[in-house]
Design a protein around this nucleic acid. Structure first.
Lengths: 206, 206, 206, 206
DNA sequence: TATGAATGAGCTTTCATTCAT
DNA sequence: CATGAATGAAAGCTCATTCAT
């Protein structure tokens, strides 16, 4: 019956509630990663978690809220790790390189999360049929990356290029690195990340 | 990429049959592009084509075959155009550049096909739940692109880099260029393609 | 998949479709009359008609359309009979008396329809929770009856009274006559109707 | 009409318990009046009362008992008021008139109770699907009213008529007066009641 | 060839009720 | 006394597929 995401002044969720939500979110991630968004029914998620179907309805207002929770938790964990790694860096080249390597590093241990995130981004739609997270859900990400490029352009590290195109390309390169790795578990993720860092360094530098 | 829909020894399709299949495929593309894979039911595709639902079942063994036909036809058209443009080129740099620009050029007039293609690639699964076109559906594409990179590396145009990583990055950059353009119709596709060509030229060159 | 109520210019429903709709409506009436609106699920209605649940969804856009169809058909049949009986009458007293007796006469053979009609009127709500047929659904009926009273008042048959109050009272008296009869099948409906005609004649006359 | 909720030999309810029951009943009345019987879930009633869902289950054996309590309390309050007003009257005409006016007077301030009462009467069913309060729930009421008519017939105030028909008609007229008023809050309830008193006086008098 | 009709499985959601704490 | 948590049945609805005509 709970539906809001921690509005101010509302009772914090109990420990048990929090644990259940986490459990359900984890189960959802696994089922989505395994079977794909379209086949990730509440029934299947519940079965995978060995709980009753109704439990999910009890803890989440609906399927949409559950999916958004998956996104928020997963996305938050990634951002937290990457931001920590980038802290203190001052050169655009260093930031760019670290960004790529840090994301790869974090994701190495979170393959299923990544897969689920992609599925939801691509497939989740609001009740009126519009994509819940379109490509434009990346807008914030693009903006953040453009900051780095502009820094590099200002201080002479980088040549002049279209920062939006670079941000889109950078994002997609990282996303697909993971996608390839998810599909080919033997693929050397860290080596791929280093290659990518080289690639963008060369593509950007003055 | 082209799966055989006309196995040897089978009767060729009649003219009417061919026309119907083409009509249904066209309708499917439009519905998928508009409503997304999950909402592209046979009923909706039939309604959009102003035909009976049964017609689809009559002409296609099932939904899966229809979706595959959409992929084959669309993919085939792209390949045809791009290959024609690349014919006669000899330098890796020229091939790389032309590949990017030619794909963009062709897609500019086929936005819905592109959208539908992405939806199907991402979502279609076989009866046993496995992705029908995973990232590995790109294997042929990657191989073809790797040929170009190796050519460049052999003749000294390109530096030494991991060709598989470059192929993945290249593919994803092009895919997402289109995705961004689909989501932002005012985006300048050709300018984006030129930026991308520059980007990969710099990333590859010796 | 059909949803509209005979919009102009649309293909008329096929004979088979019409028969199915009629069958489903009949089943719905029986189930509602027996089990009440709240327990008249589509599953139960289908089971009662010995058809698959999906058939109802196929022929009706949703439960609401089915319920409205029940109302329209039942209400239409009543109106047809009563109007025929009242045709040609000129005195208000005669119209009043005939109205009561004709409704009773028709309803004697349509007890379940009557029960179902009442249930739907009382219970059906639109998606936003508002009553679909409130007491105000009787507005047309009230207006029609007020015409009769005013005629009587103009030509001196009836005394001066509030026509709206009389219409409400008249309607409710007839409705409850049926309700009582439905609950007590041995009750003499025609005698009740005659008593009622006397009652309102005395209540109205100058 | 008052069913026994305090059978002999059972512990009387504590003060707190009584208060809780009253609070829950009040909440139930408001929710039913607002949303209708079908949408008056225990969850909603609990939420409206700002208590836990479990509290209701704790204080009432089930939903049915809660609903019956709503009926008993509301009905009891009406009867108390009306009986007080009728005390001491001796003529049938006076009793008839007073009955109508007193009920209207009391109800003017208890609109939601009235609405809820109607919803429950119409919709509540026992576990086996039979109406809990059918039209026959009015049997006691009919008997009481028939006493008045027979008194009038014995002492010459009233003509000879079927007392049961008159009781049904009288009850339904009063019920629908309220229903109309609930649906049309601007309707003049007292004027309606006076019209009704006139109407029945004329319908009954010798 | 083409169609409308029908099916049944599966979907999300709501709900009264039970129970441990 | 009160609560939050959990259950499982039942609801309305969508859909791919089958089939007689």
């Amino acid at each position: 019956m709970r539906s809001e995401n921690e509005p101010e002044g509302q009772k914090a969720r109990s420990f048990i509630e929090e644990a259940r939500r986490a459990q359900i979110v984890a189960s959802a991630i696994e089922v989505i990663a395994e079977a794909g968004f379209a086949h990730a029914s509440l029934a299947r998620i519940a079965q995978h978690a060995a709980i009753s179907k109704g439990v999910i309805s009890y803890h989440f207002a609906g399927k949409e809220e559950l999916m958004e929770e998956v996104v928020n938790r997963t996305y938050g964990a990634i951002a937290e790790h990457v931001v920590a790694k980038m802290e203190g860096l001052t050169t655009a080249t260093g930031l760019l390189r670290t960004h790529i390597l840090a994301v790869a590093e974090h994701m190495r241990g979170h393959r299923t999360q990544l897969r689920a995130l992609g599925e939801i981004f691509y497939n989740l739609r609001t009740a009126d049929g519009q994509p819940r997270y379109g490509i434009n859900a990346n807008e914030d990400l693009y903006r953040a990356q453009e900051e780095i490029y502009r820094l590099g352009q200002r201080n002479g590290e980088f040549r002049d290029f279209d920062t939006r195109v670079m941000a889109i390309t950078h994002s997609s390169a990282v996303d697909n690195m993971f996608a390839y790795w998810v599909a080919n578990p033997d693929h050397d993720l860290d080596a791929h990340a280093r290659e990518l860092a080289d690639l963008f360094e060369r593509a950007c530098r003055a």
